[in-house]
C-alpha cells in the first residue's frame, strides 16, 4: 500500500511530506547536506534574513536548560542581498521546497526583503517572522499586537507573489487572536510557535547567563504548550497551520498533526541529531503503515 504523505499548504506550496526544518536551526541547508539528503524533506526554512547584514548579539548566546535551551543569537545573518547573490544559487538544485524566513525592524524592511526575494523563483515561500524575541524593536513586538501583525502581513502581501507563512510568537495573551488577524490580512498559513521568552541566572557569578539577559526557550520543554496552542489556532482559522516546538521524533510530530497542523517544523532537534528531520519523515511513514493510514490527512485535526 502506498502511503500518501503529500500535503498542500495552499497558494502553490505543495510538500512531498509534512516535514520542514525550522529557521535558525538549519543554517542555509548546506551544514546538514553532509548528514542527510535534503531532498527527502518536505522543505527547509533557511536562517532569518534581514535587509541589512546583522552581526547578532554578543556572546554568551546560549544556555542549556532542562530538556531545552535558550538562545539569544539576535538574527545574525549576511543580509538579503548577500543571500540573493551568493546563497540562493546554492539552493536552486533541490527538489524539496526552499522557504526563506524574513525579519525586520520596521514594516518597510519586511517589504523590501520580500521584494528582493520575489524574483528568486526557487524560493517557494517566505515565512514572515513577527516573533523573534532577540531583536530590539520590530521582531516580536509586531507579533504581540493583532493590529501590527496585520499591518506587516498586509504590506508584505502586496509585494510577495507566492506562499506567505506568518510565524507567530507564543509570548502573547491570545495567540488565536493574532492568528486570526494575520489570516484576515492575507497570510496563506501560520507557523507556531516561535521560542518562549525565558532567562537563567548563574547564582555563583550573580549574573544572567545570556548577554541579553533574556532569550528564546526551545526544545521538548515547550512542546506541550506548543501543541496546545496549535490545537487552539487550528480550530480558529481556515488557513493551514504549521506546528513546531520541541519536536524530537515522529511521535512528537504526529501530536501536532493530530492537534490540527498540516505540516511541522523540526528545530532544536537538528542540533542534537543532524538527521532528526529525515528520521521524523521515516517515522511518520512507519506509523501510517502500522496503523493502516493511507493518507496523512486522515490524522490531521482528529483531536
Amino acid at each position: 500500500m502506498g502511503i500518501n504523505l503529500k500535503v498542500d499548504l495552499g497558494a502553490g506550496l505543495k510538500l512531498d511530506n509534512p516535514v520542514l526544518t525550522a529557521s535558525g536551526t538549519f543554517g542555509f541547508g548546506h551544514q546538514y547536506a553532509e548528514f542527510i539528503d535534503l531532498n527527502r524533506l518536505g522543505g527547509f526554512i533557511v536562517k532569518g534574513t534581514t535587509l541589512e547584514p546583522r552581526q547578532g548579539n554578543p556572546a554568551p548566546r546560549l544556555v542549556e536548560t532542562p530538556s531545552g535551551m535558550i538562545n539569544a543569537v539576535g538574527l545574525q545573518n549576511p543580509g538579503v542581498e548577500d543571500f540573493a547573490k551568493y546563497i540562493y544559487p546554492t539552493l536552486t538544485g533541490f527538489t524539496s521546497k526552499v522557504i526563506v524566513n524574513i525579519s525586520g525592524a520596521q514594516v518597510s524592511d519586511y517589504v523590501k526583503v520580500a521584494e528582493i526575494l520575489a524574483p528568486l523563483e526557487k524560493v517557494s515561500a517566505i515565512e514572515v517572522n513577527i516573533s523573534c524575541p532577540n531583536v530590539k524593536g520590530g521582531g516580536m513586538s509586531f507579533g504581540t499586537s493583532p493590529e501590527m501583525a496585520a499591518e506587516v502581513t498586509a504590506a508584505v502581501r502586496k509585494v510577495w507573489p507566492r506562499h506567505m507563512m506568518v510565524k507567530l510568537t507564543p509570548n502573547v495573551t491570545s495567540v488565536v487572536q493574532i492568528a486570526k488577524a494575520v489570516e484576515a490580512a492575507g497570510a496563506d498559513s501560520v507557523s507556531l510557535v516561535n521560542t518562549f521568552l525565558a532567562m537563567v541566572v548563574d547564582v555563583e557569578r550573580r549574573k544572567a547567563c545570556l548577554s541579553t539577559v533574556t532569550g528564546g526557550l526551545s526544545g521538548p520543554a515547550i512542546r506541550p504548550i506548543a501543541v496546545r496552542m496549535v490545537w487552539q489556532v487550528a480550530q480558529a482559522v481556515k488557513i493551514p497551520v504549521v506546528g513546531l516546538g520541541g519536536i524530537m521524533d515522529a511521535s512528537d510530530a504526529l501530536q501536532f498533526i493530530m492537534a490540527g497542523a498540516t505540516a511541522v517544523q523540526i528545530g532544536t532537534a537538528n542540533f542534537i541529531d543532524p538527521a532528526a528531520s529525515v528520521k521524523v519523515v521515516d517515522g511518520i511513514e512507519d506509523y501510517c503503515r502500522r496503523h493502516n493510514v493511507a493518507d496523512i490527512s486522515e490524522l490531521r485535526g482528529i483531536i
Binding site: G24, T25, F26, G27, Q31, Y32, E34, K47, Q55, G56, P58, A59, P60, R61, L62, V63, M69, N71, V73, Q76, T268, N270, F271, P274
Partner: peptide, 23 residues
C-alpha cells in the same frame, strides 16, 4: 571553548568576534 549547541555552524550560538570577519 565557547558554549555551543550544534557543532556544525547552524545554531550560531558559539560565535567569537574576529578582526577580519566579525562574529
Amino acid at each position: 571553548e565557547n558554549h555551543m549547541a550544534c557543532g556544525i555552524g547552524a545554531c550560531l550560538c558559539c560565535v567569537e568576534n574576529t578582526s577580519d570577519r566579525g562574529n
